[in-house]
Amino acid sequence: MGKTIHVKVFKYNPAIDREPGFQNYLVPFEKGMSAMDALDYIYQNLDGSVAYYDHAGCSLGICARCTGKINGKAGLLCQTAVEGDVTLEPVNASKVVRDLVMRRGETRE
């Protein structure tokens, strides 16, 4: 088995959960993968419930809808390279719709 990384993802549904938490996933590492690639792997193979802005995104660094914090630093999930274990959070947890998806028009800190 090739190299794997631990991806820690912010999980929160404000309508149900009393407080946010994190979920850990083990993801195969591929050189040149982005945080979005890691989330795609999780979504397609490990946990269909994970939410990140993807349904109308470009995944090429153009639309800027997939903002998030990658190891504490704000950036685009689709254009931030992942090189090892990583923590993924929304830029502002108080404006979350679910997990990493923030309310419309509030994708900034």
Binding site: N13, A15, I16, G48, A51, Y52, D54, H55, R98, D99
Partner: peptide
């Protein structure tokens, strides 16, 4: 069938 039954931003 989706894993999560909630309607809010349900990617699946």
């Amino acid at each position: 069938c989706v894993a999560l039954k909630d309607r809010i931003y349900n990617k699946e």
